[in-house]
């Protein structure tokens, strides 16, 4: 088990997140895929923090989790507002700003 294994695992998770963002149109699933990508970054932070024996990386992950919680709350509020307005969660149907 090396740092490379952990970073590669984080890469796989980040890849899954990208796949979800690109190929799914349900806004809820897209938001959740973004969460997967944030977790991949957290895994990388902790792996490098472990390598250097320095806890700054773990502090950064702690902040990232707090910011992610705020982001999810606001993101889901936007989804609810959108659903009240258009009765859809399809990302392709929401292009009001284009007109």
């Amino acid at each position: 088990m090396t740092v490379g294994h952990m970073v590669t695992l984080a890469g796989v998770l980040f890849t899954l997140g990208i796949m979800g963002v690109i190929s799914r149109r349900n806004i809820l699933v897209v938001l959740l895929s973004v969460e997967l990508m944030l977790n991949a970054a957290a895994l990388t932070f902790v792996a490098f923090s472990n390598w250097h024996g320095n806890l700054d990386g773990q502090v950064m992950v702690f902040f990232a989790i707090a910011v992610a919680a705020a982001e999810v709350a606001v993101g889901l509020a936007v989804v609810i507002a959108l659903f009240r307005l258009r009765v859809t969660v399809d990302a392709d149907q929401v292009s009001m700003l284009k007109q």
Binding site: T2, V3, G4, A47, W51, G53
Partner: peptide, 10 residues
Amino acid sequence: LFDIPLNAKY
């Protein structure tokens, strides 16, 4: 990175 073991500092 595949040559660097994890938990070496522990």
